[in-house]
Each structure stands twice: as structure tokens, then as C-alpha cells.
Computed example of a mutant assay.
Amino acid sequence: MAERYSSFTPGGTGWLLQRVTAAFLVLTLAFHFFLLHFVNHAYEIEFAGTQMRMENLGYMLTMIMFLWAAAFHGVNGVYNALVNQGLTGTPKRVVLGILSLAGIALVVQGTYVALVMGGIL
């Protein structure tokens, strides 16, 4: 029988955060689908309505946390999948740097857009 290998240390911080962000993403994605596909139908979504929703501080903070959780979960998941496939040494550090920069850029830009749409900036 093949040995199970994971780059996550069971019970470690990365392992825990991957699961916590997954649970948070499931909940906020359900909220998103309910609000934007059942309460408001997709064809009714307009820029002005998005701005109006983002002016609600609770909604805006939820969407920012959704963005941050999704960025962390995605970057961490891709990185660990590559490590599990055998990525080591310098390529591992380069991939970590590129993924980290991409994740940070996504979070900074997304947060900026949310704050502008919410009327804070």
C-alpha cells in the first residue's frame, strides 16, 4: 500500500488555516449565491446595485474577508499541491515568491476596489 504524503503538518497552522478558510468560503459562497441569485436575479445585477450593497459596512467587510480567505486558500492550496508533487529547492522558493506576490496583489487590488465602491476612499 502506498504511503500517504502531504506537505501539511497535521494539526499545524497551515493545515488549520486551510480548513478554516474552506469552511468560511463555503458559508460566504452560500450567502453570495443566495443574495445574488435568489434574492436578486443575475440579470438584475447592476453597478449601482453593487455600489449600494458595498456601502453597507457589514456586507463590505464580509466581501473583503471572502476575498482574503479565497486568496489565502487558493495560493496555499496551489503551493502545497506543487510541494506534494515533489517541488523542492530553488524552484520551490521561486514558486512561493511568485504565488505570494500574486496573492498580495490580488488582496490589495480587491480591497482597494471594495473600499472605493463602499465610498470609503
Rank of each mutant, 00 (worst) to 15 (best):
M1S: 14
M1R: 12
A2W: 07
E3K: 12
Y5G: 02
Y5S: 03
S6R: 13
F8Q: 01
F8I: 05
T9S: 11
P10I: 11
G11W: 05
G12V: 03
T13I: 12
W15D: 06
L16I: 03
L17G: 02
V20G: 05
V20H: 04
V20R: 07
V20C: 08
V20T: 10
T21R: 03
A23T: 13
F24N: 01
F24A: 15
F24W: 15
L25K: 06
T28S: 15
F31L: 07
F31S: 06
F33T: 11
F33D: 07
L35S: 12
L36Y: 15
L36F: 15
L36Q: 11
H37T: 10
H37C: 08
F38R: 09
V39R: 10
V39C: 05
N40P: 04
H41D: 02
A42R: 13
E44C: 08
I45V: 14
I45K: 12
A48I: 01
T50G: 14
M52E: 12
R53I: 14
E55Y: 13
N56Q: 14
G58E: 07
G58L: 12
G58R: 07
M60A: 10
M60Y: 03
T62N: 11
T62P: 05
T62M: 15
M63I: 13
M65I: 12
M65F: 15
A70I: 01
F72K: 02
F72P: 00
H73K: 05
H73M: 04
G74Y: 01
G74L: 01
V75I: 00
N76E: 11
N76V: 07
G77M: 03
G77Q: 04
V78D: 05
Y79Q: 01
N80R: 04
A81M: 09
L82K: 00
L82I: 01
V83E: 12
V83S: 08
V83C: 10
Q85T: 01
G86V: 05
G86W: 11
G86S: 11
G86H: 10
L87Q: 05
T88K: 11
T90F: 14
R93L: 03
V94K: 13
V95P: 01
V95A: 04
L96E: 06
L96V: 08
G97S: 11
G97Q: 10
G97F: 07
I98Q: 07
L99Q: 02
L99G: 04
L99S: 09
S100M: 06
S100I: 00
S100T: 00
L101P: 01
A102E: 07
G103C: 14
I104P: 02
I104N: 00
A105R: 04
L106S: 06
V107T: 14
V107Y: 06
V108G: 01
G110R: 00
T111G: 12
T111E: 08
T111V: 10
Y112W: 15
Y112F: 13
V113E: 11
V113F: 13
V113W: 15
A114L: 14
L115G: 00
L115P: 01
L115T: 01
V116S: 06
V116Q: 12
M117H: 12
M117F: 15
G119D: 11
G119W: 09
I120M: 13
I120Q: 09
L121Q: 07
